[in-house]
């Protein structure tokens, strides 16, 4: 610590000379059992059938993927769900060069991207595979890589990654609209 900003520390006489405690270790463990809510429940159930559902904004018709139950544009609960395509394009991406806690299976560098499925109004985050990180582009068309049918569960992890389709990129002026 630089001396010019450090305060002087004083201790009561009764504990003067006692070795200071520098740190204590007090682990915390708390278990929570979440429930996904109505929209996400429908989304997860559809995932088992290899279908991607989005929530429809009751005022603007925008489709949010995954559905979050509420549309921020309307400030209202979204009752209607629609299926969107399992292919779309990369809105933007990040090449991560460090390990991700809890995902030791991912060897850096790996690409995480905002993928917008056709039929959706916003993107959601997904892993991009089947391509070198330095070949990844904004506007690149990608398709969901589904788990084998026998491994499908009611889980977002049914789509471990997305990979390029090889089709021409989405025009620059359509990437974000």
């Amino acid at each position: 610590m630089s001396a010019d900003v450090a305060p002087e520390v004083s201790v009561p006489d009764v504990i003067a000379g006692v070795e200071p405690v520098q740190s204590v270790r007090t682990p915390i463990r708390l278990d929570y059992t979440y429930v996904p809510g109505r929209s996400l429940t429908a989304y997860l159930k559809a995932m088992k059938d290899k279908r991607i559902l989005g929530g429809v904004c009751p005022e603007t018709g925008q489709v949010a993927v995954p559905p979050r139950g509420v549309s921020p544009l309307a400030g209202k609960v979204t009752e209607e769900l629609v299926e969107v395509a399992d292919h779309g394009h990369i809105m933007s991406f990040c090449v991560t060069h460090i390990p991700l806690p809890g995902r030791e299976d991912l060897k850096p560098p790996f690409v995480a991207a905002w993928v917008r499925p056709e039929g959706a109004s916003i993107g959601f985050i997904g892993l991009i595979t089947g391509i070198e990180p330095d070949e990844c582009r904004i506007g690149m068309r990608v398709r969901a890589v589904w788990k084998p049918d026998e491994e499908l569960e009611e889980s977002a992890e049914n789509i471990p990654s997305w990979e390029p389709t090889g089709e021409p990129d989405v025009p620059e002026n359509e990437v974000r609209v």
Binding site: V35, P36, G37, R38, S39, R68, G69, V70, V77
Partner: peptide, 8 residues
């Protein structure tokens, strides 16, 4: 509240 998320 079993079947709804907080936002819902």
């Amino acid at each position: 509240i079993e079947d709804q998320s907080e936002p819902e």
